[in-house]
Amino acid sequence: MKPERPLLRLGEFLVRQACQRLPREVREERYREWAAELPAILHDPQVRPAPRRAVRMLAYAADTVRGTAMTPPVRGRHRATRVSAGLDLFLAVGLVLVAWDIWDIMRAPGHALNYLQLTWALLLVAYPLSILVRSAGRVTVLISISSPLAGVVVSLWNAAQAPGDWVNYLWAAFLFLCSLAIWLADRWARGGHPGSAGSQRVPG
């Protein structure tokens, strides 16, 4: 028996191991592609002598294992989705607290504690927003959401200066609803998958 066959088998075994880490839908295609290169490397006329070709072929197969080990497994993607859902929940809770505090301020504009609570709620909203902004293509959405929120703060400040003027409260509520609507519209447009609105730049 020529030594070629067991070498190819070993190469195919390594490539198969590498492909096990890939998502199911691409696994077979990648195996076909990578395994097809093995005999070509083993018979590459540019590489001499034959043992060097064998080493090269095995190195090729072994490196596919390294390559797929570096890509996040399917389980990792599920985890990323869970983390993203958690961030959205965190953001939603923060926005509800902001709304609550605005309502408290409207009811009792003279209470300094309500403003303190609003500051705390805004900081709570700032945390998930700061994480979301790291995703490519999210800056425009972040600016669109944070601008009305800044308007809310200004309106509340005006309300604190003139507690009897109801227009300030109306503005605060309107701007808050605007930022909430933009956030929900963004979620809807992306089909509930954060980070899918990626940039068109070359990867890497």
Binding site: R30, E33, W34, E37, A40, I41, D44, Q46, A59, Y60, A61, D63, T64, V65, R66, G67, T68, M70, T71, P203, G204
Partner: peptide, 20 residues
Amino acid sequence: RYGYDLMKAAGLPSGTLYPL
């Protein structure tokens, strides 16, 4: 170009080339 050809041209191992 096929994968092995690109590997030789770019001087990259398979584990780096294919994800790219």
